[in-house]
Amino acid sequence: MKDLKVIGKEQVAGYEFIGIEGGFGDGTRGMLVRDIAEIHGTTVKRINELIKKNIMRFKNGVDIVNLKDDSVVVLNDLEFTQNAINRYKYIYLLSERGYSKLLKILEDDTAWDIYDKFVDGYFNMRQHIKEQMPMTDLEKIALLAQGTTQLSERIEKVDSKLDNLIENQALNATDYGSVNRAVNHRVYAYASIHHIPKSNVGPLFKDLGNQIKQVANVGNRSRIKSKDYDMVIKFIDNWEPSTATKTIIEQTELDVEKSA
């Protein structure tokens, strides 16, 4: 274990616990299972059992350490009574990575909401030595760069979600009306060219409507996505009825002629 140091009481997201630094490397932070259990409103016994059941998922020295295995650590500094030290077989300390793995196992209502707050307010904040030595210029630059990078990543995620929302929204009333007008224009233009009377254009409308739903992958024309508008208009302009529809219309005309 790497130079574990107790840094005193910490307050994050309204929870108080013992801050621990250096348990997994220089400047890293860890949290006791005892404190995690209190935060999540459960027992140390339950969390220890979950860890034991999934111990193969935790990498020793990276995700988790058992403080009882390390004689260097003074457990009294962590506010464990001698009775508790004697009673517990495991006194686990988890790194940020270990805590995130535990959350996947816990999956309680507290888990992910609390985790975000602890990453921002605890694990990612390296505390300076108690003499409050000021940051060097390089440390300030590094911290600023880290914050800028995180902000850029969040902006990119928001932009991506916004683009996705815009692309997948349904047609507005204006575009929907344009699609309907394009359908009417194309059907009657085809009927005029092929001398099909208006009384027989029903199969043409049905054919074009079905093909539009197929190419736009929707169950109803009103559900066409905004991103597919240009594609649908182009399809309508170049539409030709299926062979089956042409046959139906021809047969209808023959039946009319026979009955005349």
Rank of each mutant, 00 (worst) to 15 (best):
D116V: 10
S242T: 08
I129A: 12
N180E: 15
N66A: 08
R29T: 00
I141M: 09
R34M: 05
R46A: 08
K5T: 11
A13F: 02
W239M: 03
L162C: 01
I114L: 14
T42S: 04
I248E: 09
I105H: 02
T43S: 15
K89V: 11
E240F: 06
Y92I: 04
K140W: 07
N184S: 12
L93G: 00
N76C: 15
E49Q: 14
L151F: 04
D159E: 15
G30N: 01
K130M: 13
Q11S: 09
G41F: 00
N54S: 00
Y176E: 12
A244H: 14
N217W: 02
I36W: 00
I248Y: 06
S199L: 06
Y99F: 07
K258S: 13
E16V: 02
V183K: 06
D237Q: 15
V74A: 14
G30C: 11
S192T: 14
L75E: 03
K59W: 04
E49M: 06
Y229K: 12
H195Q: 15
G98M: 10
L50E: 11
I248H: 12
G14N: 01
K246A: 08
Q211K: 15
I51A: 03
L254S: 13
I47N: 12
V65D: 12
E139F: 10
I64K: 02
E250C: 13
K2R: 08
V73E: 08
I248K: 12
K104L: 05
L171A: 06
K258P: 13
V12P: 05
S222M: 10
S95N: 09
L94E: 07
K161D: 14
R181I: 10
T28P: 05
R223Y: 14
N60W: 14
I236C: 10
M56L: 12
D255L: 13
R126N: 03
N180K: 06
V6G: 06
K5H: 01
G8P: 01
N238Q: 11
D163V: 09
Y92D: 10
K9M: 10
R126A: 01
V183W: 05
Q82M: 09
L143E: 10
G61D: 06
S95G: 01
S192G: 13
Y99D: 09
K89I: 07
R154V: 14
K225N: 15
S259E: 14
G177Q: 03
G25M: 00
G147F: 15
A145T: 12
E131M: 13
D69Q: 13
I155Q: 03
Q11N: 12
